[in-house]
Design a binder for these strands. Structure first.
Length: 451
DNA sequence: GCTGCCGGGGG
DNA sequence: CCCCCGGCAGC
C-alpha cells in the first residue's frame, strides 16, 4: 500500500474504482468517515461548493468513490501524495458498509474508531445524527431530516437489489500489486481512465448499454463513460475549463449509472413519454423515490448519450454501431449539456454569458441540446464544427434530439408554475435552512429540486 | 394558511 | 455581486 496506488487511482482526474477508496493514515480514519458522510450528504442536500470549501477544506486530499446501488457518490480530494498511505482495507470496510446499509438508517455503519465529532457539527445537527458522539461508536447514520420522504435522500436502490455484489478489488489482493494492473487497458483520453471496473460500456451487451447520468440539478446529461460524465461535470458544473488536471484538488461528481437497453430507448424516442423508469434497471424504491432519479428522469426525458471517446481509436465504432436505435443515443463526447434556463449559479464560472444560449460553448467543439431547454435556444451559434471528424450519425442524432425536444415551454411564460416537487424548504425544513439551495434561501426558484 | 418564487431593495 | 424580504399566487 503505497502512494503509488493512490496516485494511480487519483491522478487520472477522478477515476477510481467504485469500491476503491484511497485512505490515509489510520488515525485519520476519522476524517475519512466524515468525508464519506459528507459525500452522501452533499449528494442531495447541500451545495457542493459549500461543503467543499467549508467543510473539507483543510483535510488532506484523497479520493473517494462509493457505489451505492445504482448511484455513484464520488468525491475526489486531492491529497499530497507523500502522505498518502493507503489503507484499502479500511476503505473497503467503509464502503462496503456504506453500500450495504440500505437507507442509511439500518445498520449504522460502524467504522474503525473515532470520528465522533469530527463531522461538522454545525449545531443544527444537520442531517446526520452524530449518534451522540458515541465516543468510539462511530455511528454515523444519515438520518435525513425529512427522512420520511426526503426526495433528496439518496435512498439506495435497496440493499436487496441483487446487484453486483460489492466487489472489493484491491482488497483481496491487498497491497499495491492489484491496484496497479487494475485497468491498464482502459486507459483512454487524458488519462481519465476509469477504474470503474464495473460496467463500462466497452463491453456493451447485446442490447444493454450502460450509461452514466449526471445528477446535477437541471442536468440529465447522459454519457457513456464515466470519464465522460466526469469531465462533463467538471466542466459544466464545477466550472473548470481546462479539462485535464486543472482540478484545484477537489472535485465532486455525482452521477448515476443507468442501464438502458437500446430497444427501450428507441421507444423512448418515438413516444417521448416522460418518465423513463424503464431505463433504470432496478425499479426505484417506491417509498422514497430517488430524488435524483425520479426527478431527473422526468424532467429530462430522452436518455441520450454522448461520448465517443470510448477509445478514440476504434471507439467510434464501438458506440455507433451498437444498434440502429443507438444512433439516437450517440452524441458527441464532451457534449455539454444545455441546462434549463436556470443555470446553476455556483459553477457559472465558465458560462461566460453565452448570451442567449444556455449551453456552454467551451472549447470543445461539440455541444448538445437539452430537450428541456426552450427550443429556440440553440440556433445560430451552434458551434457544431461541421468538420467534425466523425460525421456519421452524430449530426443526425443531434438533429433528432432537437426535433424531438420541444416540449414547448409555452406553458408558464409569466410566472413559473408552482413547483410541485418538494423544495428545499420542505425537504430540509426551516431548521436546516442553511442546507437549502441558495435560490431557496433567497426565496427564488429552487434550483435543487427543479420540477 | 402554507409555500414557491417574483420583483425589488439593501449592503 | 450576495443577501434579504414583501407580497402575489397556487395549493
Amino acid at each position: 500500500m503505497k502512494g503509488k496506488v493512490f496516485k494511480t487511482v487519483v491522478r487520472p482526474a477522478m477515476s477510481f474504482g467504485l469500491e476503491t477508496v484511497a485512505l490515509k493514515k489510520r488515525q485519520e480514519a476519522e476524517l475519512e468517515v466524515a468525508e464519506l458522510k459528507m459525500l452522501r450528504f452533499s449528494l442531495g442536500v447541500t451545495k457542493m461548493d459549500r461543503i467543499r470549501n467549508e467543510d473539507i477544506k483543510g483535510t488532506t486530499h484523497q479520493a473517494l468513490g462509493v457505489r451505492y446501488g445504482e448511484m455513484f457518490y464520488c468525491k475526489l480530494v486531492k491529497r499530497s501524495e507523500e502522505e498518502v498511505d493507503m489503507d484499502k482495507v479500511t476503505a473497503a470496510m467503509v464502503l462496503t458498509s456504506l453500500s450495504t446499509s440500505p437507507l442509511v438508517r439500518s445498520p449504522p455503519v460502524k467504522v474503525c474508531e473515532g470520528l465522533s465529532g469530527s463531522w461538522k457539527d454545525n449545531g443544527s445537527a444537520g442531517p446526520f445524527t452524530p449518534s451522540s458522539n458515541s465516543s468510539s461508536g462511530g455511528y454515523w447514520s444519515w438520518s435525513a431530516p425529512s427522512d420520511q420522504s426526503n426526495p433528496s435522500t439518496p435512498s439506495p436502490p435497496l440493499s436487496a437489489d441483487s446487484f453486483k455484489p460489492f466487489r472489493v478489488p484491491s482488497l483481496g489482493g491487498v497491497g499495491p500489486g492489484p491496484a496497479g494492473p487494475e485497468d491498464p487497458s482502459i486507459d483512454e483520453q487524458d488519462g481519465s481512465s476509469l477504474l470503474f471496473d464495473e460496467p463500462i460500456p466497452r463491453k456493451r451487451k447485446n442490447s444493454m448499454k450502460v450509461m452514466f447520468k449526471c445528477l446535477w440539478k437541471n442536468c440529465g446529461k447522459v454519457l457513456s463513460t464515466a470519464a465522460g460524465i466526469q469531465r462533463h461535470i467538471r466542466t459544466i458544473h464545477l466550472g473548470r475549463n481546462c479539462d485535464s488536471d486543472c482540478s484545484d484538488g477537489e472535485e465532486d461528481f455525482y452521477y448515476t449509472e443507468i442501464k438502458l437497453n437500446t430497444d427501450s430507448v428507441a421507444d423512448g424516442l418515438s413516444s417521448l413519454s416522460p418518465v423513463s423508469p424503464s431505463i433504470i434497471s432496478p425499479p426505484p424504491p417506491p417509498p422514497s423515490p430517488l430524488p435524483s432519479l425520479s426527478q431527473l428522469s422526468d424532467s429530462h426525458r430522452p436518455p441520450r448519450a454522448s461520448d465517443t471517446k470510448e477509445s478514440h481509436a476504434g471507439g467510434t465504432t464501438l458506440l455507433s454501431r451498437s444498434a440502429p436505435s443507438a444512433l439516437y443515443l450517440i452524441h458527441t463526447d464532451h457534449a455539454y449539456q444545455a441546462t434549463a434556463p436556470v443555470s446553476i449559479p455556483s459553477s457559472s464560472s465558465n458560462s461566460t454569458g453565452s448570451a442567449s444560449t444556455s449551453f456552454t460553448p467551451t472549447n470543445s467543439s461539440s455541444f448538445s441540446i437539452s430537450w428541456q431547454s426552450p427550443p429556440v435556444t440553440f440556433t445560430g451559434n451552434t458551434q457544431v464544427s461541421p468538420s467534425k471528424s466523425q460525421g456519421f450519425g452524430e449530426q443526425r442524432s443531434q438533429t433528432i434530439a432537437v426535433l424531438s425536444s420541444p416540449p414547448r415551454a409555452t406553458t408558464a411564460l409569466s410566472r413559473k408554475v408552482r413547483g410541485e416537487g418538494k423544495k428545499c424548504r420542505k425537504v430540509y425544513g426551516m431548521e436546516n435552512r442553511d442546507m437549502w439551495c441558495t435560490a431557496c434561501r433567497w426565496k427564488k426558484a429552487c434550483q435543487r429540486f427543479t420540477d
